[in-house]
Write a protein that binds this DNA or RNA. Structure first.
Lengths: 126, 126
DNA sequence: TTACGTGCAAAAAATTTGCAGTTTC
DNA sequence: GAAACTGCAAATTTTTTGCACGTAA
């Protein structure tokens, strides 16, 4: 555990929204100016492999980068509004059942799962 | 409708597995040597916006690129084995219910959805 | 004809790598 | 002290863009 990793972790933990690698770099540098871009990528990779963070696309609303968030107890669904860009998270019991069912029916051991949805939120739907 | 688009479409339609942009370019060139990389990207973007193809990450088993597949009637779940790399597709009624439920509970109009799962397939699980 | 699509070349965006030096435990 | 981690610089990979020319409808 190094100072750089601590800074990166803190940024992800205290983030109020989903951050991409560049945003994480910028915020981590505010805590520890020495943090380098490659350390961010290396750390993200590590955290991903450890299952401590989830990687998201958020439907690539802007650009082709990825977003990261701390993985807490229960998985949640991400909904991205194609008009206003708002990201909504949703926890669903049905989603949990679906995964259990998948593991049984496909004899597949799930390690990580990602359900992302694009569409129009209540305020933007027509 | 141009010759280049026809070639790209044909490649995606007749693909036996998920292809990324580079693979699509290579195969499209086999049909029409004039196809350029940017035309592939522009066409993929178009097809994506029209809802004719889906864009996948396949858990980024290798590289950071995206994979494309023709969008047919029913959505399916993609399962990627973290060991052998095999991609399995699965159609689930529960998945359909989940989406319906989501639209109702969150007052969100779904345009596109993507459920990807990473883990270990029957042959690789431990 | 005329709006749209294309190749080309160059740039931008996103990520990875080799390496020598530094830090953690 | 050994193993792991880091910054730096450079390279890769993936995607986008401007522009002059070509083509489908």
């Amino acid at each position: 555990m190094t100072a750089q990793r601590r800074a990166i972790l803190k940024v992800i933990e205290t983030a109020s929204k989903h951050l991409d690698a560049s945003q994480i770099l910028r915020k981590a540098r505010a805590l520890d100016n020495s943090v380098d871009r490659s350390t961010v990528y290396r750390t993200l990779d590590l955290l991903k492999r450890q299952g401590l963070i989830d990687e998201l696309d958020l439907m690539h609303l802007k650009g082709e980068g990825h977003y990261y968030e701390r993985k807490l107890g229960r998985d949640h669904i991400h909904m991205a509004c194609l008009r206003c860009g708002k990201i909504t998270e949703f926890v669903s019991e049905t989603f949990e059942s679906l995964k259990t069912q998948l593991e049984r029916d496909c004899r597949f051991h799930i390690v990580v799962s990602r359900l992302e949805v694009g569409g129009y939120c209540a305020g933007c739907r027509h």
